[in-house]
């Protein structure tokens, strides 16, 4: 394997790892939101269903930021746009 190809592939793998750092923020946000929802249910148990549905919606939004990073990582690993230029 040529050295430039090895460098591109290694750098792509590292980039995929770095892209998954987005999960850090998403996880923190989800934990915070869930904590607040638990507080709300503890204070007002009769509002449980409304709180739960709002929480699920919010979690879906928070998860999206993490999944943007995930898509980048998947692209870099399975559909790498950079290695194609090297092979030819």
């Amino acid at each position: 394997m040529a050295i430039d190809q090895a460098v591109v592939m290694g750098a792509s793998a590292l980039g995929a790892g770095v892209a998954m750092f987005g999960c850090f923020g998403a996880g923190m946000g989800q934990g915070y939101a869930t904590g607040k929802a638990v507080e709300a249910v503890a204070r007002q148990p009769e509002a449980r269903s409304a709180v739960t549905s709002t929480l699920i919606m919010g979690l879906a939004f928070a998860e999206t930021t993490c999944l943007y990073g995930f898509v980048i990582a998947i692209l870099l690993i399975f559909a790498n746009p950079f290695t194609k230029d090297l092979v030819g």
Binding site: E63, T64, L67, Y68, F70, V71, I74
Partner: peptide, 16 residues
Amino acid sequence: VSMALRHFSNILSGYI
């Protein structure tokens, strides 16, 4: 863009 990516990436992650 964000709407398309949100739906796509959520289902894609489950699929993978």
